[in-house]
Each structure stands twice: as C-alpha cells, then as structure tokens.
Design a protein around this nucleic acid. Structure first.
Length: 653
DNA sequence: AGGTCTGGGGATCGGACAAC
DNA sequence: GTTGTCCGATCCCCAGACCT
C-alpha cells in the first residue's frame, strides 16, 4: 500500500536533486514532497515504522545531497529562532495526525460520531487492567473514566492513536461545567473521584443500580436520590413511599433505600467540582445580561457546556511552568473598600547597552504599596511584559474579596484578559507571548471574589496623577540593580493544563508537539553564538539575544549564498581550517592556499577558516564582505583593521 | 577531532498475573 | 489489597562506523 508513495517520493527527490537546491530550498522541497505525499495515507492508514524510517532516511540524505550530514536532523527541525530551519518533523507531523484522529474519537456528540468510535469503545472495554471486576455496562469510555484497557488488546489500527493519547497526556478537566454536563458524566469509574476516598463500583447495590435501575450517568443517580428528601420516605428496606414502591414493583429492586444510599455515597466521594448536587445553577438570563452590561470587568468562568469540550491534550506542555508556591493573601473577613491602581511598563537601554524592561505599580502618592520593579532577565524585555508583571503583583497582593480597578496603559492587556483568555486557554497558550504572566494573572483573577475592572488611562485630570506616578515608578524600577521576583504561581484550581482537544487543529498539534520536545544543544553552535554576542557587544555596545542572532543572519539584504554560508558557519558545518588539523593525511587542507586570497602578495601560511575566508577569500569573501558593509557601514573600519592580520584561527569576524 | 548515525545491550518502567 | 515475578516496550548510553 505504501510502496507507490515511497517510490513517488524517491523519484521526486531524485528529480529535485538535479537542480542542486540550497539548504533552505531543500527544506521547502521536503515539505512539499514528503510532507504532502505521505499526509493522506498516514491519516487514513497509519504509517508503518519501516516506511517512516525509509522516508526519514530519504529526507536526511536529500538534505545533504547524499553526503554525510554536518548538522543533525533534529537541529534542522528546530524553529528558526533557535538555530533550526523549521524542517518538516515527520514524527511530530504523524503524532499530530494521531491527535486529530483522537479528536474525532473523543467527539462524543452522537450526531457526528463515527461508527468506528463505538466499536473501539467496546473493544477497549473487553480487557480492563485496573479493575478486574468492572462490569461491561459501566464502561463507557476509557478517557472519560478511570478504567484502563490492556495495551496489548489495543486494536492494531488504533494503536498509534492510543499511544499518542497516553504520551501527550490526555485528560479530562474543566474549570466549571454546566449541571447538564456533570449529570451526563458516567457515574461508574468516575475520573473525578477523591483519591483519598476510593470508589466502589462492584458492590451488590451497584449491580442493582446498573441492572435494575439502569443507572449509568450521574444524572440517573440523582433521580434515585429525590426520595431521601421526601418526608414519607422511611430509612429502611421496607419503605412504602411512592418512589420506593414503584422501584420494588416495576424494577424488581429488593432494597430501594439501600440503592439510594449507595448513590449518595458515590456522589459524596466525588471532588466537589464534579458533584452535580453542589454545582451552582447556571447563570440565569438576568445575571447573564447584567454581566454583559459591564464588559470591562473580569467575567466569571464560562462553564463547559459539552462533555467533548472537557478533554485536554498536550498537558505535558504546562508542567515546565516555574512555581514559587502559593503566597497569595487569604480571604479577609472584613469587607474591603474598593481599590484602584495604575500600571505602566517601559523599556530602556541599560549600561551594558541591552534592552531592559521595568514596570511601575502606583496606588497613591506616598502609598507604601507603590512598587517599582525591574523585570527579571528570563522574561521578554518589553513594556507590555513589564506592565503585566506590575499588574500581576498588584492583583496578587490585594485581599481576595476587595473590588479592584486596574488602570492599564496598554490596550492589549485588557484584550488579552477580557477577550482572548478563552481562546488562549483552548489553544494551550501555544505561541502566545507572555503566557506565564498572563496565566498567573488569569488564575489570580479567578481566585478573587471581589470584582476586577479594567479601565484605560485617559487624560482626565484625576487620572493624570496616577499615570504620571506609574511612569515615575517604572523609571525608578529601570534604575534598580536587582531584578524583581515575579511570583508565577498558578493555582491548579483556576488553571487548565494543555490544549482543548475539541478545538485542536493539526497545525496547533504539530506546533505543540515540537514545542514540547527537547533538542540537544550543539556545543560548537552554542560557542559560536556566544562568541558573536560578545563580539557584537565589544564592537557595537549591545548583546543580541539568541533569536536576534538567528534572525539577523537571515536578513533580506544578504544573498541566498551568503545566508547559507552564515548559517553553516554558525553551526561550524564547514569543513575548513582547524577541522582538518587532526585528520590523517588531510592536514594540508586546513592551510590557506593563495588561490583563495585576494592579495597577490605571498601570505604566511595559516589555517584558512571562516575569518580568512570572509576577509580574504574571492569566492564567498567578497560578496559577504560587501553585503555586511552595505548593511552595517560602521563595520568598514573593523574589517579594514582586521584584514592585514597574520595567521590566525578563523572565527566569525 | 568532532560531528552524525546506527545498532546493541542494559536499565527501567508498567502492566498482567499469581500467590499470599 | 499487597507483594513478587515475568515479560515486553521503551529509554538511555555507548561503541563503532563513517565522514571530511
């Protein structure tokens, strides 16, 4: 089945090879050949390991024209700002397809759910590993409940999907759910049980509830409970109340009271979030309207309204979040007057010439809570990040039941929190800027009982003082030597891990999977980047970040060849200079020969590496030099100064 | 030498199963 | 419900081949 595909790919790559494409072009060619030609069949029919290995090998060989690879494949698949070429990562692409299949499997809406999903449900329920006595009628869906199926019994054609589900941490979680959703969840093997109070699913009463009463979902159980509130109900097996009487006659239940008690026990062992009895009723129409009236205040959590929306995947992404632990103020008993503060973020050049961001948090003149903070270096150094840090600090230090008014200066802070939060949360913050701060801020806001309102700083007289105060504090923060400690604590109760499966797209899954993966750093590359950073600082007075370095060598002013040259140089992928030093019988290849030199005067023999190639070589050197000079005229002096130097080991200069 | 890639072997983990 | 054993899958490490 796969032979035509592999043959087509191989033939196509052979044809492309004849055009001698550049590294950059090869990446694109691989995307449009291997990527597209294997996509469909992988989707409908998983890619066998042999085919995967064949394609991977073909890609690797094509990348370097059959020669030995100087840069490993993983590095090439990394994003461009990390030194990669964003090359198609076949493994991640296949995994993304598995997750898309998982998405359709876990679409529980009967009107759209495919036949094979029901068959898989049944098949998985045949061999339960963690509860040998589990009853077949209690097993609805392994990912919705706590039972697990024997991996060896996973059907062959769904094995990869099941593996990916496990590998990328499928889970079921919501911040809040409507009563309908809670009532619709299976009551048996409920995943939301309190771990300290193990569930019973196999007692005689449980069998009666399933067999006689037909109780499958928590909602079915709720109707059994009503009698307990009925004054005519007697707490024994012979109760004659209407409900018990009916159960005895119509369902053949011997002890309706015991069954009702069993349901109550079961529900009380659920964590409060999952108990349909304690869940507050959904907002009625009036409440919803009043919320709409004030679009500036932080809205209550929107309850999940369909079971399928509760599945989360790629939960491994969130585990790397740093956490200093909870240090948030507890609920104050006394009612608090409402409080307002102003936030502002600015950026400056510090004495090392690097961009630093600082934030100001202003309450009132001479208020001791006024805060000036210098943003720690591990965060993005932008005004928005700094303002977010200031706002986070303000929210975290306010009593929870206090009404807050946040006067923000950047519009995007308001829109991120008030409008984009749901989408960001659904997409697992993949690709979102300032996600750690926004996450912490959202969690802190959700933990508050007081109302939080976002108001823009405008030029009215009353707000001018606050605005100016926040700016002054931000400037003060910028002068600080010690960076502030930002508390990125995210309360799990107010935070969802991973991505919402029901809104997952292949693109998003692919990005998330690539983001979750760790790529081993190359020592040569790390050293090169460090060297360039230091040299830039020496010559131009600022240190570029790693991302800036990688984007600068792709600047549009450079020709394709030079870009290619710089990229390979950054990875030490040229077999030049010192590379030959220790290779038997090839040592002389590292020695500069005159044909590469611009000067006709005899030069002392030296190791011909990058420096000498750029500075003296005819082939690359002239064009690279010219292009660098056009872009950075100030380099002119440097290169002239460096040019006449004697033998040296080449570096980036 | 320093990089890539492959394959093999050992350690580890998780699950099934049996015995207690 | 707990413990121990077995087995397979997976991960990790390393040696070795290969390249230039």
């Amino acid at each position: 089945m796969w032979t035509p595909v592999t043959e087509k790919v191989d033939a196509s790559l052979t044809r492309w090879e004849k055009l001698h494409p550049t590294l950059e072009a090869r990446c694109q060619i691989l995307q449009i050949t291997v990527g597209s030609m294997s996509q469909y069949l992988t989707q409908v029919n998983e890619m066998p390991p042999a085919v995967f290995n064949h394609l991977l090998k073909a890609m690797r060989e094509f990348m370097w024209g059959g020669k030995s690879p100087p840069i490993n494949f993983e590095t090439l698949t990394a994003p461009r700002d990390k030194g990669g070429k964003n090359l198609l990562d076949l493994k991640a692409r296949n995994d993304a397809l598995h997750l898309m299949k998982l998405k359709s499997y876990l679409d529980l809406d009967p009107s759209t759910r495919a036949e094979w999903c029901y068959l898989l449900d049944r098949r998985l329920a045949k061999r339960v590993t963690n509860d040998s006595r589990a009853a077949p009628e209690a097993l609805i869906n392994t990912f919705l409940q706590s039972w697990r199926a024997d991996e060896r019994e996973w059907p062959k054609r769904h094995k990869s999907m099941m593996r990916s589900a496990k590998k990328f941490g499928i889970s079921f979680d919501v911040l809040a759910a409507t009563t309908e959703v809670l009532s619709d969840l299976p009551i048996w093997h409920h995943h939301g049980e309190n771990p300290h109070m193990p569930q019973t699913n196999n007692s005689p009463a449980c069998y009666c509830l399933r067999g006689q009463h037909g109780v499958i979902r928590t909602g079915d159980g709720l109707t059994r409970l009503r009698r307990l509130d009925n004054p005519t109900h007697k707490k024994n097996k012979n109760c004659k109340c209407v409900d018990c009487d009916q159960d005895r006659r119509n369902l053949g239940c011997a002890n309706p009271h015991a069954c009702a008690i069993a349901v109550e026990k079961k529900l009380s062992r659920l964590m409060p979030k999952w108990d349909p009895r304690t869940n507050p009723a959904p907002l009625d129409a009036d409440d919803a309207e009043s919320e709409d009236e004030d679009p500036s205040s932080f809205p209550p959590v929107r309850p999940t309204s369909a079971i399928s929306e509760g599945f989360r995947i790629l939960t491994c992404l969130s585990e790397t979040l740093p956490s200093l632990g909870p240090s948030l103020p507890s609920e104050d008993e006394a009612p608090q007057p409402s409080q307002a503060f102003f936030t502002k973020g600015i950026t400056i050049r510090d004495r090392d010439g690097n961009t630093r961001a600082a934030g100001g948090l202003w309450y009132d003149d001479h208020d001791e809570r006024n805060t000036a903070l210098l943003l720690p270096i591990h965060l993005r150094q932008t005004a928005r990040t700094a303002e977010l840090a200031a706002a986070l600090h303000g929210v975290q230090s306010a009593p929870r039941n206090q009404d807050l008014i946040i006067y923000y200066s950047q519009k995007s802070i308001r829109s991120e929190i008030l409008q984009k939060l749901d989408t960001r949360e659904a997409s697992g913050w993949i690709g979102a800027q300032d996600s750690s701060l926004l996450r912490a801020l959202a969690a802190a806001l959700r933990g508050r009982t007081g109302k939080t309102t976002f108001v823009a700083q405008d030029s009215s007289q009353a707000r001018k003082t606050g605005k100016a105060g926040a700016v002054a504090l931000a400037r003060q923060g910028a002068r600080k030597r010690e960076a502030a400690e930002i508390n990125p604590f995210v309360d799990p109760e107010h935070n969802l891990r991973g991505v919402q499966l029901s809104t997952l797209t292949q693109k998003l899954a692919y990005r998330g999977i690539k983001q979750a993966r760790k790529i081993a750093p190359r020592m040569a590359t790390t050293n090169n980047v460090k060297e360039v950073t230091q040299a830039t600082f020496r010559n131009f007075g600022f240190s570029p970040t790693e991302a800036e370095f990688w984007s600068s060598i792709r600047h549009k002013d450079f020709s394709r060849q030079v870009k290619n040259f710089l990229y390979k140089s950054a990875h030490s992928a040229h077999r030049i200079g010192a590379f030959w030093k220790h290779i038997p019988e090839c040592e002389e290849r590292g020695i500069c020969c005159r044909k590469y030199g611009v000067s006709t005067r005899p030069q002392p023999a030296h190791q011909c590496g990058r420096d000498s190639i750029i500075l003296t070589c005819r082939k690359y050197g002239v064009s690279t030099r010219l292009q660098v000079l056009v872009r950075y005229p100030e380099c002119n002096n440097i290169s002239r100064r460096t040019y006449p130097q004697p033998a040296h080991q080449c570096g980036r200069d």
